[in-house]
């Protein structure tokens, strides 16, 4: 019986010691690595989010500028168009008056 107790003490104590050593030495290292990874992922995601927000902002600004450009027209084209209309109808009127004459 005594031998058995001795055996248990001599075998289990070192094992327990090793377990405790592992828990207190490697455990925090693993935990630290996981925390680092999480922080890294969060940073990466935050950066990506910022970049995407910036891209969306730029795209929206571009769309707004395009819409504004669409609403604005070249005054030369407007005057030119009216000139064409007056010219065409003037020409037709002149031809008709010539035929009449």
């Amino acid at each position: 019986m005594k031998n058995l107790t001795e055996f248990r003490l001599t075998r289990t104590l070192p094992l327990t010691g090793i377990c405790l050593l592992l828990t207190f030495s490697i455990g925090p290292t693993f935990a630290a690595t996981n925390q680092d990874r999480c922080t890294e992922t969060i940073t990466r995601l935050t950066n990506e989010n910022k970049k995407l927000s910036h891209d969306i902002f730029r795209a929206e600004a571009k769309a707004k500028a395009l819409r504004e450009a669409e609403d604005k027209f070249d005054p030369v084209a407007i005057v030119g168009g009216i000139g064409w209309i007056v010219g065409i109808f003037g020409g037709v009127a002149w031809l008709k008056s010539r035929k009449k004459g």
């Binding site: 609403d71 168009g81 009216i82 209309i85 109808f89 037709v92």
Partner: peptide, 22 residues
């Protein structure tokens, strides 16, 4: 008709310009 030509021209120009009123 010949007399109508100026009126047609003015309304053509109005139609041409009206599309710019957004």
């Amino acid at each position: 008709s010949n007399d109508e030509l100026p009126k047609v021209a003015v309304l053509t120009a109005s139609f041409f310009i009206a599309s710019l009123v957004h």
